[in-house]
Amino acid sequence: MNSTSFRGHSRFLDLLLGVGAVAAVVSGGGSLAARASAPALMPVTSYRSASCGCCTGWVKHMRANGFTVRDVVVADVGVVKRRLGVPARLASCHTAEVAGFALEGHVPAADVKRLLQKRPPVAGLALPGMPLGSPGMESAYGKEAFTVMAFTRTGAISSFSQHAK
């Protein structure tokens, strides 16, 4: 159960989140079949709010690329982001963990695999915002260029990979 305390929001959001916390559930049981057939990649745990319409798209992308993913609904994903040290200005919708690294947002599976192979001295990768055309964000409305950033525990940020339109 990953429903967590809520803080750092305005009062009305606290009220709503208080209600949401009761309803928060761990979902991910439906991925057992995918797990069984997945290659031996480190398991991923992904945290999202119930109302996120694109986070499950990323989970499916990761599963399609061989990762075992636990998809966890939480009341306040901000708590997870702070625990994992995701810089606020790199925030996206969902936050995930793999092998001690944080993954923020719609980071492509290929970048995650390179992270796990090279193990650079970073706290994690982030794709800030929700760029159109990134994994789980495929859209007939268009594509946006995006840059996956690496960040350290001390908040240093660098470019990890660039993706053209």
Binding site: L127, P128, G129, M130, M137, A145, F146
Partner: peptide, 10 residues
């Protein structure tokens, strides 16, 4: 700023 995530979805 667009590259830092403040794109069309937000």
């Amino acid at each position: 700023e667009a590259a830092m995530g403040v794109g069309r979805m937000l």
